[in-house]
Design a protein around this nucleic acid. Structure first.
Lengths: 247, 247
DNA sequence: ATGTCTTTGTGAACGCGTGCACAAAGATTG
DNA sequence: CAATCTTTGTGCACGCGTTCACAAAGACAT
């Protein structure tokens, strides 16, 4: 997982556990795929496999939403798509601003996954005057000076920060002051925000570092266990029959 | 958080809890900043504030690494930077390949946070023949046909997938077959991999959906507080909540 | 040396998330 | 209608992670 919530004591929102909320989008994606293939119903076992989770966990997750399944049959795909969408608030359109149109910001602006799921990029904002008016993803970049006006005019409550680390906190404060209450932060900094504002962060470098840790551990155990293992031997280990590594 | 581990029963690697490993990069970043300002020592309270976590949690995290602090004084910044770097495996250089050089792949290639922390982009790979040879981030894009050779020649064990969803699983399988054992996945798909391969995923769309959920909840509570909807009656009833629609 | 003050390291309690295992519920068949 | 079969929904137990609270350890002053 590349991101995580930022402090706040895991407020169980309306009885739905945070861990469940984090999995709902996963289920929704699998269900959407089934829907496009006109599959009418799906069992918890099948859907769990498609989403890469345990079936008992999936059933428990759905139980927080209500009793939407039929015993002996499974879940109605279309109905469940609607219920989860509604639960996640995706039946309405969320205008989003992206601040910081560098490589990453531009990539985000071009990312198709937003529009398809209830999000609409309302504006692209950058501090560089040279960027102003330049079209990115078919949309002119606007200058930071207009940030407050843009937020207000479009009723934006979700902001994406893709600026350099040094600018992030200041941008964050301006967004919050202008009325934004949810922030997705790509800048490698800890943002401090007032209560009531949600921050989620995505940090590419941190994800790689976590992988490196496990990679190092694997290399160490391998060397310790059976001396030097040629790289060719590793590729044959598809689907290892034995379970986990011994302690 | 934008990412999450993919199944696997939370193997506690060498006694260091997974949750702690995920925070080490955070501490490292804060410590590096202190180091650049030539701060000699730091207390758990100060460092915790800089990293945005609870100080007790930070001390417990460090206790898994060893007793590196001095009571009454705090932690030696330089020493701790070294210890955490070593623990994360960042004292060695990790060659990384990026597969899928679209907007996102290019952004990742240009991202400075990699090189600065022990990672080196060894190659950029794309399936489009028109991209081959084209320079991105000062490095020529190579064709997918050479994937296996590139992995082997450079001893790559970490791969980044930034392809469209449809291509991700196939690319993943080729990477794994060629010897890659850690994958950072940006494609919106569940990857299935053999045991022993680590996958972390970063999903921009999922992060936004989680924010939308909280945003909706906040809006709902606000309305309820204003007397529009009784807070409890709103949605708690199972078996057919108010706003549902028959299939 | 002795006492005081600061800060670490950790024992213990608690809460959340996970997974097992099974009873309840409905479909389906005879 | 009764019997059987499938699949949901959930009670329960377990383990991980978080937080509190405090004793132990060292720095520093007298």
């Amino acid at each position: 997982m590349a991101t995580g919530r930022t402090h706040r004591p895991a407020t169980r929102s309306r009885g739905i556990p945070e861990a469940t909320v984090a999995r709902l989008p996963l289920y929704l994606r699998a269900l959407t795929a089934l829907s496009e293939r006109s599959v009418p119903t799906v069992s918890s076992e099948e859907l769990a496999a498609a989403a890469g989770v345990n079936s008992a966990k999936l059933r428990k997750d759905f139980s927080y939403l209500g009793s939407y399944g039929t015993r002996g049959v499974g879940y109605d795909v279309e109905y469940l798509v609607y219920q989860i969408s509604r639960e996640l608030g995706l039946t309405q359109d969320w205008p989003v601003v992206i601040v910081g149109i560098g490589n990453l910001g531009a990539a985000l602006a071009n990312y198709g996954g937003f529009a398809s799921r209830g999000f609409r990029v309302a504006a692209l904002i950058d501090a560089d005057p040279a960027m102003a008016g330049k079209p990115v993803a078919g949309m002119p970049v606007q200058h930071t000076d207009d940030l407050e006006r843009i937020i207000e005019d479009n009723g934006v409550s979700i902001g994406v920060i893709a600026t350099p680390a040094g600018a992030a906190q200041q941008v964050c404060e301006r967004l919050v002051a202008a009325g934004v209450t949810s922030i997705l932060n790509f800048a490698p900094t800890v943002l401090s925000v007032p209560d009531g504002v949600d921050v989620r962060k995505v940090d590419l470098s941190i994800e790689l570092q976590i992988l490196a840790f496990h990679e190092q551990r694997k290399a160490g155990e391998e060397a310790a266990a059976d001396g030097v293992v040629p790289p060719v031997a590793a590729k044959q280990q598809r689907k290892g029959p034995d379970g986990d590594v011994p302690p």
